[in-house]
Design a protein around this nucleic acid. Structure first.
Length: 793
RNA sequence: GCCCGGGUGGUGAAAUGGUAGACACAAGGGACUUAAAAUCCCUCGGCCGCAAGGUCAUGCGAGUUCGAGUCUCGCCCCGGGCACCA
């Protein structure tokens, strides 16, 4: 008997598939396109991570299944090579990022090619190549022309370690997403993308999307829509006014004070001379407090401004306070405070001894705020009205406006770093800020051997390259300066799947005819840590491209699934614990076929899974068992009926499981089939061939090898998925469950097509059943065809 | 606090409202072997029982149903998202 040499087999076939372009579709002439996409990796120096490897595999098995099912499958590969992650590592090892990435991309290529995925290696993209980032910059210029890219001054997250501003989405749990340091708030003028313009579409779209619930829920929470009203308050004894947002306009009569955030522009204009010192001191202290301090110490602080506002509902004068529990960035940075019906206002009012006035009946407002809705009291002519109705009529009464507010902020895209696409604008004294026209793109990132590290002075390293900075205005031809910042790495990755279709097209961002055929992407799988980063940015960019008239859809991925995490023996992997799973190591030890099958077999796609070195031997043994079956294959043999039945059932069940991406049970069914083969001494060649096609999804190299040993010269992936014969699936005899009052009392073998009459007769005849029915009245009999019969007594 | 997931043997897990625990790991036993590894075969939720069988069992408590892991309601616990967001 020949030995199963996984390494030899896998090396042979992974090479052959690439060389013979088995998985390179003809994009133009495809009849039946299926676009299978995994999140392209950032080629880290550490090499391929098992988490990436797992997500790739989840996409890859579907790609292989669809290919066998007759689809033209496109499973592209590329490199997310620009960005802080690569740059930080280059800094650490003191090497220029471009040089370093040449090496790491080569290493990733080697690793992924060894894994036997069905990638098309002829259409690689790399975000750091000028041919690619020309179009990243082009997107910027298009958004700029549409008013969706703009500059503004704002308080931003400044990472003191990465020495750049970051988007809100890149702050995770108060830490920099990359380096885990705590960012500071800095007031800076930066470039933004107006993602808030799409807030409603991003939210409403979720309802129709076939994406993992967990991802949709994260996006929904992040967008954070709340419905309420904008209401204007006048400042007493002046012609100043300010606007507030509230979700509870029905409680307007209970407003006993107002609060402005320390950053509010009105603060300096309204403070009284008497309060001036106190207010200025407070603002200074609030400014020093870090985000973390604010979070940890939620004790309310504030100071009276000395000014009063006029409640537009009853014309009462209420004091205006300055307090940092009101955030500058949400709504107008100013609120009406209703301590009787808001927990935060209640706490503040208690501390500073402000009036608490009940305007919704219910609860004991001496103890705590009553935040439910209800019937209005002490609200003038609106007393007695229900909250829900009062919201509308009170808003109208004071000339306010019913509106929705969002937590989502605009996406800050400039980075004071080196390793990214330069923001393609020039500043001209005469013409102002001008986007670089398409014919002048890309704005090439100059090679910097030295001084490319971030300086921390708020300007990108490119500011030091005079030959880059000095340019001419594309509009008037006069002297002009370039922008020194580069763009966020998440912009590079927000559109890469468009580029895969035509990576060499230098006339268009992507070839429209191919886009019409292949987009949107059919299946996308990746980690949910990107729910409000990559995945939301991508939706936004897709919507923007839609509005530019480039595409006719605005959801980039028809189906998205968030894959679970891989744990080692139930624990999170980390380098410090030394329990990192290296795919290459297991490829060597048990083979990639066994490794891939194992991580899929561990459980449902979306759930976390615990990897163990003992467990993986299960799929290794399975592969070996299949390999060893080869000696039982006989061209002359006719299979037993039970083997044929199992085969056809397996085909059918596999189809169901694969469509629903239940990879774990699909593999289990192939294992069952394997076990049935071991109950027979011979297998017909016909049956074994069909079996190999099923197996090829999960154990591709093994299947190819045995396919070749059967005498085939073409790849098994050129074959068609076998069809099952419904007639062969039917059992002749079945187990009929007999219940009495819903409890199983007997199981008998009967003809599969037994009628209700016959079943009833057989059930009553059963000795075991007689025990339970004797001397009892049969009230009812329930019969479920070819399953059970239940006697109710 | 609000919004998503989830809770089933020693372990990872299966189960269109119809035989709970498929498949696999671990464990135990057997065959082969001088021996071991590998391989092949068998057993494997708890309790009572020699067995046949009985009985309990899918986080807890109710309910709907002839029948509930699955549906409904209320609670508990775990994971994730948001959170001084007005």
């Amino acid at each position: 008997m020949e030995k199963y040499e996984h390494k030899k087999i896998e090396e042979k076939w992974s090479r052959k598939w690439i060389d013979e372009r088995v998985f390179t579709p003809d994009l133009k002439n495809s009849q039946n396109p299926y676009y299978a996409l995994f999140m392209f990796p950032y080629p880290s120096a550490e090499g391929l991570h098992i988490g990436n490897f797992y997500a790739f595999t989840c996409v890859d098995v579907m790609a292989k299944y669809k290919k066998l099912k007759g689809f033209d499958v496109f499973e592209p590969i590329g490199w997310d090579a620009f960005g802080i992650h690569s740059e930080n590592y280059a800094l650490k090892i003191g090497e220029a990022p471009g040089k370093m990435l040449e090496r790491t991309v080569a290493n990733f290529t080697k690793q992924i090619q060894a894994a036997g995925l069905s990638c098309d290696w002829t259409r690689e993209v790399n975000t750091m190549s000028p041919e690619y980032y020309k179009w990243t910059q082009w997107i910027f210029t298009q958004l700029f022309e549409k008013g969706l890219a703009y500059q503004k001054e704002a308080y931003l997250n400044w990472c003191p370690s990465c020495k750049t501003v970051l988007a809100d989405e890149q702050i995770e749990g108060g830490e920099c997403e990359r380096c885990k340091n705590i960012p500071e708030k800095r007031k800076m003028k930066q470039w933004f993308f107006k993602i808030t313009h799409y807030a409603d579409r991003l939210l409403d779209g979720l309802g129709k999307m076939d994406w993992s619930e967990i991802t949709k829920s994260a996006q929904k929470n992040w967008i954070g829509k709340s419905e309420g009203a904008n209401i204007k308050f006048k400042v007493a004894n002046s012609d100043l006014e300010f606007e507030i947002f509230t979700t509870r306009p029905d409680t307007l009569f209970g407003c006993t004070y107002c609060v402005l955030s320390p950053e509010h522009e009105l603060v300096s204009k309204i403070i009284s001379d008497k309060q001036k010192d106190a207010v200025e001191k407070y603002i200074q202290e609030a400014g020093i407090k870090s985000e973390i301090e604010r979070k940890e110490n939620k004790e309310k602080t504030g100071v009276f401004s000395g000014a009063y506002a006029v409640n537009p509902a009853n014309q009462e004068k209420v004091p205006i306070w300055i307090a940092d529990y009101v955030l500058a960035g949400y709504g107008f940075g100013s609120i009406m405070a209703v301590p009787a019906h808001d927990e935060r206002d209640f706490e503040f009012a208690k501390k500073f001894n402000l009036e608490i006035r009940e305007v919704i009946a219910g609860g004991d407002i001496n103890k705590e705020a009553y935040v439910e809705e209800g019937n209005l009291v002490s609200s003038g002519k609106f007393s007695g009205v229900q909250s829900i109705k009062a919201k509308k009529v009170i808003t109208e009464f004071v000339g306010g406006k019913l509106v929705a507010n969002y937590k989502l902020r605009d996406w800050c895209i400039s980075r004071q770093r080196y390793w990214g696409p330069p923001v393609p604008v020039v500043y001209c004294e005469k013409c102002g800020t001008v986007a670089v026209p398409e014919k002048d793109l890309p704005v090439v990132l100059p090679e910097m051997e030295k001084n490319w590290e971030p300086s921390g002075d708020g300007k990108g390293p490119l500011a030091k390259v005079e030959s880059f900075m000095k340019t001419v205005c594309p509009r008037c031809g006069g002297e002009a300066r370039r922008e020194a910042d580069v763009m966020d790495n998440f912009l590079d990755s927000a559109w890469y799947f468009f580029r895969y279709l035509s990576p060499d097209n230098n006339k268009e961002i992507f070839s429209k005819d191919l886009g019409g055929k292949w987009l949107p992407v059919d299946l996308y799988i990746g980690g949910n840590e990107h729910a409000v980063l990559h995945l939301m940015y991508t939706r936004f960019i897709t919507m923007a491209l839609h509005d530019l008239g480039l595409i006719d859809f605005d959801n980039p991925f028809k189906r998205f699934r968030a894959n679970g995490m891989i744990l080692k023996n139930g624990k999170k992997m980390s380098k410090s614990k030394g329990n990192v799973i290296n795919p290459e190591e297991y490829g060597e030890k048990v083979g990639y076929d066994a490794l891939k099958s194992y991580i899929l077999f561990l459980g449902p796609l979306s759930e976390d899974r615990s990897f163990s070195d003992e467990g993986i031997m299960g799929t290794k043994r399975w592969a070996e068992r299949i390999f060893n079956l080869f000696d039982r294959v006989d061209g002359e043999y006719t299979d037993e009926k039970k083997v044929l039945r199992k085969l056809h059932r397996t085909i059918k069940n596999m189809e169901n499981d694969m469509e629903e991406q239940k990879y774990n049970t699909a593999i289990a069914k192939l294992m069952e089939m394997t076990n049935v083969f071991y109950e027979t001494s011979k297998i017909s060649e016909e049956t074994f061939k069909k079996f190999l096609i099923l197996v090829a999804i999960f154990l591709p190299a093994l299947a190819e090898e045995l396919w070749e040993k059967l005498g085939h010269t073409k790849s098994i992936f050129k074959e068609k998925w076998p069809e099952y014969d419904p007639a062969l699936i039917q059992d002749e005899e079945i187990n009929l469950v007999i219940q009495v009052n819903g409890k199983i009392r007997d199981i008998i073998r009967v003809n599969a097509d037994i009628s209700e009459e016959e079943a009833r007769e057989a059930a009553i005849k059963s000795e075991k059943i007689k025990k339970y029915t004797a001397e009892k009245e049969i009230k009812k009999i329930i019969f479920v065809k070819s399953k059970l019969i239940n006697i109710v007594v």
